[in-house]
Amino acid sequence: MQLIETHIAKKLEKPIRFQEYAVGIFNTIPTKSSIKKAIKKKLIFIDGIVATTSKFISGGEKIELFESEKSSTFERLKLNLEVLFEDDYLAIIYKPAGILVSGNKFVTIANALTQNLQKSKQQDAVKPQPIHRLDYPTSGLLVIGKTSSAIIKLSALFKNKEISKTYFAITIGLMNSEGIINSPIEGKESITKYTVLQTVKSERFGYLNLVKLSPKTGRKHQLRKHLLAIGNPILGDKEYFLEGKVLNEKGLYLHASILEFIHPFTKEKISISKELPKKFTKIFSVT
């Protein structure tokens, strides 16, 4: 068997059953039913011992997910990915719009990583896995962990807001030249800083803006929800939109363009950028 993912259990106020705790801790098996299947197949270990449904988690346990040697789904997917940075610990790849990062679907970024990345030579090397998520319709940079320790440290960098992410979007309607959106999402503090770089008139939408976005928190669909909240939804968004202002053909105009952080092992500053997709530059001239 090959190790896929590692999770260190958070400290809990009171112990809970593992099959309840495990929902959502692994990217490759996010649902309760998939957790049960993995337990039945003896693919999950807790502190080196095969997991059971009756096991209770209290905090600090090392939980490991393995892949059966009989599983070949991962290897069968042929999807070429652009790799912008790679070393023995981590990689940064470009996720095209219209592809899931991970989940139960066959065509996902997670399922294509092994064929696109070099195997780590570190002792704690694992199957490469995404550290964070980008929405299905969003394009841009994605951080990948290649070792167990790298996955843990990179996840901590994201949690502690030590990874700077910059997005670009095209929004609908006139906007202030810059601002900060401080609107809670699901009761949690959510902050987005924005700067309007260019504005053009549009016969269909009135005005379109090229906007630089710097999220200070990482809530689900934060940028899309925040821009709709100020009346300037992202062009092509079919979930967060104004009535009569939906573009159905070109996808979502949201792109994760820049990632900056200190490498958790080499301590070098990593700064990676990816140019805007062509659908952006057809509307705005970017130098």
Rank of each mutant, 00 (worst) to 15 (best):
E20M: 11
S34K: 14
G173L: 15
T166P: 03
S71E: 14
P128M: 06
S183N: 13
S202R: 12
K201Q: 09
G231T: 05
T166Q: 06
E86A: 01
I46P: 02
L252I: 13
V126M: 10
S257V: 03
S202P: 09
P184V: 01
G206C: 15
N111Y: 06
P215A: 14
G244C: 11
T166V: 04
S190N: 10
S285F: 12
V83M: 00
L157R: 04
T266G: 02
Q122N: 07
I272T: 02
L228R: 14
L43M: 13
H221Y: 11
G59N: 12
L43V: 11
L3S: 07
K250E: 12
I172N: 09
D88L: 06
I63C: 05
I99L: 12
S273R: 15
A229Y: 11
L242D: 13
L154N: 01
K165A: 03
T147F: 00
T266Y: 06
L213R: 01
K250F: 11
K161N: 09
L259D: 05
K78M: 15
G59Y: 00
Y207L: 06
F168V: 03
I25L: 13
F241M: 04
K165M: 04
K216L: 05
Q19T: 00
K36E: 06
G60I: 10
F280R: 04
L100T: 09
G251W: 04
T73Y: 12
L227F: 10
R133T: 03
H263A: 01
L252R: 10
K274G: 08
I99F: 13
L235Y: 13
K282W: 12
S72P: 11
H263S: 02
F18Q: 05
E239V: 04
I4Y: 01
S285R: 14
A110N: 07
I93S: 01
I99W: 15
Y136M: 09
K193R: 09
G145C: 03
